[in-house]
Write a protein that binds this DNA or RNA. Structure first.
Lengths: 142, 142
DNA sequence: AATAAACTTGTAATCATTACAGTTCTATTA
DNA sequence: TAATAGAACTGTAATGATTACAAGTTTATT
């Protein structure tokens, strides 16, 4: 089942989360945008539609989703957390010019890292920063 | 030349940094401790010796060192930056039980990552969290 | 010794995040 | 349907790392 085909209320219930209106709308954000939003991105997008929405609710909900393994936190920013639909471990690239964050297919085999022998691994984060193709040759791209 | 054998004032000068007393002492911290300190770790360690030291100076100095490629920033924490002697790219492991941060030898070849073809890479960060050996079997370790 | 530039310091501001208490919503039961 | 308890939501205040800024100190140059 692909992310876009998932029924959000069902998906929440399956993960032990009561499907409130705010929670549905917040998770739907990730279904509709394949980006890596900050708390504020989500808050500002939903506010016109849900004028009573509190930023605290966005924080609480995202923390809950992370705890229930629906979302991952991305700390590629220096100061602000971003969130991403939880899926097979992958990496993230941030272009330091345009600021966009991309997903990367990275297969980092923990068993290949000498110092980790016997360690219990809970999380794996791979962040790469640089300049994306478009920002290197602004004119060469249509 | 190994980190412990470096002459700090010379090293600073070579990197285009005027070797003030505070800067020498702060960089010396990294020579004497092979850890990954926070701003506060450094501040508290040096304060008894340099009672006039300001936390702002520690911030300014660490930012300068990072800018001059003497140190790297580690953002494995959720809320606080850590710093590390800049050397060949490597990863970091944080034990979620004892909180200690270890260095990892990781060789992540950017050319092996499909989505990065043609991208200019400036930084590479690999963070792994889990439970270290000692915290898994507290009694089995002397 | 004079002077300017660089460095350091302390306080105040910033900003993301969390704490907390009051309000609203939801589901269950009578 | 009404009552009630628990969960979820909201708004404000607090927290805490980091930065801005202006004033004081040190350093280097003349």
């Amino acid at each position: 089942m692909h992310r876009k085909e998932i029924d959000i209320p069902t998906y929440l219930t399956e993960h032990g989360i009561k499907a409130s209106y705010q929670r549905i709308r917040i998770l739907k954000y990730f279904q509709e945008h394949l980006t890596h939003p900050t708390v504020n991105d989500i808050y500002e997008e939903l506010l016109p539609d849900i004028p009573t929405l509190s930023k605290t609710t966005v924080y609480n909900t995202l923390n809950l989703f992370v705890e229930k393994n629906i979302l991952d936190v991305i700390l590629i920013e220096e100061n602000e957390a971003r969130y991403d639909w939880a899926m097979q471990t992958h990496g993230h690239f941030k272009c330091v010019k345009c600021g966009q964050v991309f997903d990367l297919e990275v297969n980092l085999e923990p068993s290949s890292i000498p110092g980790l022998r016997g360690y219990e691994i809970k999380e794996q984060h791979i962040y790469i920063k640089g300049v994306c193709l478009k920002c290197q040759n602004p004119e060469s791209v249509h």
